[in-house]
Every structure is written in structure tokens, then in C-alpha cells.
């Protein structure tokens, strides 16, 4: 069964329709990549899947694990297994990473009818993931994204993802602003998370991340819809020749 099935979706923000008759199916365990020019609607797609209230879906359907995703609130979607790593992560002054993740994890547990994790179990899980991603204790004590560099914010998004263990990971330009080493750390984290039940949608402008995380399918998105799909070779072709021939 496919994990995510987007069928003929039209979506707009304000008065402007951005996604036009957009369709995409992602099978469980697959890694898909989307490349496309600026302003083509890639972030819009990720917001629509995550349930951002500013984006209105006027036609089409989105099924996730066989359930109607569009009928669910953003937190329900997250707890059902959707995770969006933001292109521009949001700062939460006064809310520490440790508190944020604890609140998120326990929300998911409650959603699944499980009891809250006790402090000891929680710290154990947090520390294990933090160590793997090189996230220091000091970073965990700091407010979410406040004062973090652009690259550090991306790393923290990956860390949140590894900690929350979602089934569908939407990575919106995860690789932008990352240095070579950080790109390796983030890619490794994704590769470690690769499992039969878990899928990824990697939105990127650069072929380089796809050298580290080898996708099953690469899509080219232009003007709010997918205009070409292929394998890794397509990403290389775009990297060399740009989007001209798809416009």
C-alpha cells in the first residue's frame, strides 16, 4: 500500500492558486526527491501536507496510511506520522528544545493511548539521539531555534525528526546552508532512519544531497505540478542543464 497518495490537488494561499492538479504517490519505504525553480510551489506542497491553515485545498484528495489527511488538524497529522522539516525553522523564545520535544513526544503518546514517558526514560531517549547527531546538552537547554545559525537550525530539525520517529519525512531544503560535514551528519541521520515503513520526500536545489541519500524517484516540479519523473540521473541532468527544457 502507498503511504502517501496525493491526487489532483489544487491549493492556494491568499487568492493565488499555487498547486494545480497536483498528484504524487509515495510508497512505504521509498525516498522521493523534488527539484524545481524558486517559487514553483515546493514549500507550498509541504505545507499543504502538514496542514498549514493559510493554505486552502480547493480540489483533490490526500490519503495517508489510507486515511483522509485533509480532514485532520496539523497535530493529528504529526501524531499519525507526518513530519515537516521546515525550510525556515521557527524560533520559540522561552521554550527549550528539551521541553519542546518532551511535550511533542508525550502528545504523540497520548494520541496513541500510551502513558507519558517518565523523566528518566525521556532523558535516555533524548541523550541517545542527541549524541548521534552531535547535539550538545547546552543546545538542548536553549530555546528552540533562538540564536541558532542557519545550518544549526537545519541540524536541529533533523534531530527533532530522529527523536520523534515519524513515518513520512518531508525535508524542505534540508541541505541549504549546511557545511560539508553537517550535510554528511544530516544525510547519515536520514540513512540510518531508512526503514521499510518510513518514506522521505526530499525537496532540494542541489544534486549533492542526493549523492548521500540515494532517492528511488526524482521529480521535477514546475508551475505547481510535476512535469517529469526519473531516477537519480534526472537530478544530475538538472544540476548541469537547469530547468529550461521543462518549461
Amino acid at each position: 500500500m502507498s503511504l502517501l497518495e496525493i491526487k489532483n490537488v489544487c491549493a492556494s494561499v491568499g487568492d493565488k492558486e499555487i498547486l494545480h492538479d497536483f498528484s504524487l504517490t509515495i510508497g512505504a519505504g521509498e525516498i522521493h526527491a523534488i527539484m524545481g525553480p524558486n517559487g514553483t510551489g515546493k514549500s507550498t506542497l509541504s505545507y499543504v501536507v502538514a496542514g498549514h491553515p493559510a493554505y486552502r485545498v480547493s480540489a483533490g484528495s490526500i490519503m495517508f496510511k489510507g486515511k483522509d489527511l485533509l480532514a485532520m488538524t496539523p497535530d493529528e497529522r504529526a501524531n499519525a506520522g507526518v513530519f515537516l522539516a521546515f525550510q525556515h525553522p521557527i524560533e520559540l523564545p522561552g521554550v527549550t528544545n528539551a521541553l519542546f520535544l518532551k511535550t511533542a513526544l508525550n502528545a504523540k503518546r497520548r494520541f496513541n493511548g500510551e502513558p507519558d514517558l517518565d523523566a528518566v526514560q525521556y532523558m535516555k531517549r533524548l541523550k541517545a539521539r542527541a549524541t548521534a547527531l552531535g547535539v550538545s546538552d547546552d543546545m538542548l537547554k536553549r530555546p528552540v531555534n533562538v540564536g541558532f545559525s542557519g545550518g544549526e537550525k537545519k541540524k536541529m530539525e533533523t534531530f527533532q525528526m530522529a527523536f520523534l520517529e515519524p513515518d513520512l519525512c518531508l525535508l524542505d531544503e534540508m541541505d541549504s546552508g549546511l557545511d560539508v560535514d553537517a550535510l554528511k551528519i544530516v544525510s547519515d541521520a536520514v540513512n540510518i532512519m531508512r526503514e521499510k515503513h518510513r518514506s522521505f520526500l526530499i525537496i532540494t536545489h542541489h544534486e549533492r544531497i542526493l549523492e548521500h541519500i540515494v532517492p528511488d524517484v526524482v521529480h521535477v516540479m514546475i508551475g505547481g505540478k510535476i512535469v517529469a519523473s526519473g531516477d537519480k540521473a534526472l537530478a544530475r541532468e538538472i544540476d548541469k542543464g537547469g530547468y529550461e527544457k521543462y518549461r
Partner: peptide, 27 residues
């Protein structure tokens, strides 16, 4: 944007809003 970010991590709206407000005031 902050409320949506928290919700996108699974935190219900009725938890997210007071949490943001407390964080705003507590410091």
C-alpha cells in the same frame, strides 16, 4: 507561525498556545 510549528510536531493547539504564552511571560 509559532503555533503552527508546534502543532506540526504533534502538540495540540490547546497545549501550544498556553505554552507559548507562559514562555513569553516567565523569563
Amino acid at each position: 507561525r509559532q503555533v503552527f510549528y508546534m502543532m506540526s510536531r504533534g502538540i495540540p493547539e490547546q497545549t501550544a498556545r498556553p505554552l507559548l504564552l507562559k514562555a513569553f511571560l516567565h523569563d
